[in-house]
Computed example of a mutant assay.
Amino acid sequence: MNLTELTDLVCREIGDDKALRIMPAVMEYSTGLVRARTAADQDTTTAAALRQAAQDTEAEAQARLRAAEAERLAIAAEDEARLTPKDRATRKVARMILAATPDGHTPDPKAIDLKAVMDALAVSQTTASDYRTEAAALLAGGYRPTA
C-alpha cells in the first residue's frame, strides 16, 4: 500500500478531522518504512559487491596459479633443451608479452615496457630492449610455450 492509499483509507475510516491529527504519525511511520527499505537495498547491494569482489579475487588467484604453473613448465622445458641464459631470458620476455596480450590478439612487444623487463631480469635498459626485440622475433616465428 502506498502513502496515498493509506491516507485515503485513514480518512474514510476515522474522518478527515481525526485523520489530520494522526497524519504526522502516519508520515513518520511511512518515512521509517522508506528508510528501512533503502537500508535493506543498500545492504543487498553491499553484499552483492562483496560477493563479486570475492569472486574476482578468487579468479585472479587462479589466474596467478595457472601462470605460475605455465612458467614452471616452461622452465622445465628450457632445462631439458639446455638453453643458454640469453635464450632463457628471451623466452621469459616472450612469455611476459603473451601474458600481457589479450586473448585472440597478435602479441605486441610494446604490451610490456622496458622497465618491467629490466626488473624481471635485472638487466640494463639496452639489454632489456634487445631481449624484447628478440622475443618479438621469436613470437613472430610462432613461439608459444606448451602447457
Rank of each mutant, 00 (worst) to 15 (best):
S129Y: 07
L98Q: 00
P24K: 06
Q62T: 15
Q55V: 07
C11S: 01
P145T: 08
E58H: 11
I22M: 05
P85W: 12
S129E: 07
D56A: 11
T127G: 01
A53S: 10
Y143D: 02
T101F: 04
M96L: 15
D113L: 03
P85V: 13
R82M: 10
G32L: 05
Q62P: 04
A70F: 08
D17L: 03
D113F: 04
L9E: 02
E71Y: 14
M27K: 14
L114W: 01
A68F: 14
I112H: 00
D108T: 04
L20W: 02
E58S: 13
T101W: 07
S124H: 07
T46G: 01
Q52G: 01
A47M: 08
A48R: 11
V93E: 09
Y131K: 03
T127A: 10
G32R: 13
T45V: 02
E78Q: 15
D130N: 11
P109R: 14
R64V: 04
D130Y: 05
E78S: 14
D8E: 09
A67L: 11
K18L: 04
L114F: 01
L20G: 08
R21D: 05
A100W: 11
K18G: 03
P24H: 06
R91K: 12
M96S: 12
L65T: 14
I97R: 01
R21F: 05
T45K: 02
T101R: 06
P24L: 07
R88M: 11
A36V: 01
L50Y: 08
A137K: 15
L138Y: 04
A40C: 02
L20T: 10
A54T: 13
L3A: 08
E60V: 00
T146M: 08
A122H: 13
H105G: 02
V93N: 09
A54W: 01
A140I: 09
R64N: 07
E13Q: 13
M27H: 07
L83E: 01
A147V: 12
A116P: 03
D79E: 15
E28G: 06
T45R: 04
D8L: 15
Y131R: 06
A25N: 03
C11M: 02
R144A: 15
L139C: 02
E69T: 12
L9C: 03
R95E: 13
V117Q: 03
V10H: 00
T44F: 05
A47L: 08
A63I: 05
A59H: 09
P107T: 04
K18N: 07
L139K: 01
L33C: 07
L138M: 05
A39S: 08
T44G: 03
Y29L: 14
Y29F: 13
E80N: 12
E58A: 15
G142H: 14
K110Y: 13
A81G: 10
L9F: 12
E5T: 06
D17K: 07
E134F: 03
G32I: 05
G104S: 10
D79K: 14
